[in-house]
Design a protein around this nucleic acid. Structure first.
Lengths: 141, 141
DNA sequence: CTGTGTGCAAACTCTTTGCATAAGT
DNA sequence: ACTTATGCAAAGAGTTTGCACACAG
């Protein structure tokens, strides 16, 4: 058995109220096949094209946002021109490499956060993001 | 002489190797007058215009980036179309309100972060950002 | 005076939108 | 068939850039 995952993509879509169209299934497959990952619209689009699913950029945008609303993926809080989507919806954290706009998962996510503040009235915490910004260590000159 | 602050803006600029030009001083004044704050280029531009300093948008962009390089302010890690600059350069944290793209300081920043991971080879931690994403609490329907 | 900084407008990048065509149920 | 999704290209938003003019030292 190589791909047991394909089934769940369709399921996943259906149970989110999304029609399992060719494009959506293909994108979901790509997204969830390789475990947790973060990707931009462009990256996913490129992958899809390479995988022989010539989906349009606009559709990738749409699809990723639909997936986000459905809670299948989420948007990462990084300061970058591009939006990063993360397949891991749980509270976990990231390195962000300055200058390269690159996102790395933090290997063993055993960061502990204590003393979380109370959210303001009427608000609740949707997600806690810890972004550790990295810079290239300056070689002493 | 009404404004004693102007002196420090000029100083601040000079010691960062930036010429204290009219625009830079004005922007620095605006930025640092009201304590810690986070603002977008547009917001600052608007404030400047209102304050009678008709600086151009491009200059605000330039200036904020220069300030950032000089370490006077920093860029916030939030997922938003706009870039947020923060006058507080120390490690402290933020609420980010979904949908409204609004940034709030976390009042008493006594969040504790434990078990910070080692940065990858050759990299060092520039900054740790904790972004607590808030959503409007669903009124039970 | 000389070198930097500024303003303007055009260019760029990422993202969204409108509408005709195609696909799902 | 009827509804929803997709693709394309154009429009939008935020940001950057190039070059002539203006200002700081």
């Amino acid at each position: 058995m190589t791909k047991v995952t394909e089934v769940s993509s369709e399921e996943r879509l259906r149970s989110s109220g999304l029609r399992p169209t060719r494009q959506r299934v293909a994108l979901a497959d790509l997204i969830f096949a390789k475990g947790d990952r973060h990707l931009t619209v462009e990256e996913l689009h490129e992958e899809a094209v390479v995988a022989g699913v010539p989906v349009s950029l606009a559709t990738v945008y749409n699809t990723l946002h639909q997936f986000t609303e459905a809670g299948m993926i989420r948007v990462l809080a990084v300061e970058s021109a591009k939006t990063y989507f993360d397949t891991n919806v749980s509270d976990h954290h990231h390195f962000f490499i300055e200058g390269q706009n690159e996102v790395l998962d933090i290997p063993v996510s055993n960061i502990e956060i204590g003393n979380l503040p109370e959210p303001p009235e009427g608000m609740e915490i949707a997600h806690v993001d810890v972004v550790i910004r990295l810079r290239r260590k300056r070689e002493r000159s």
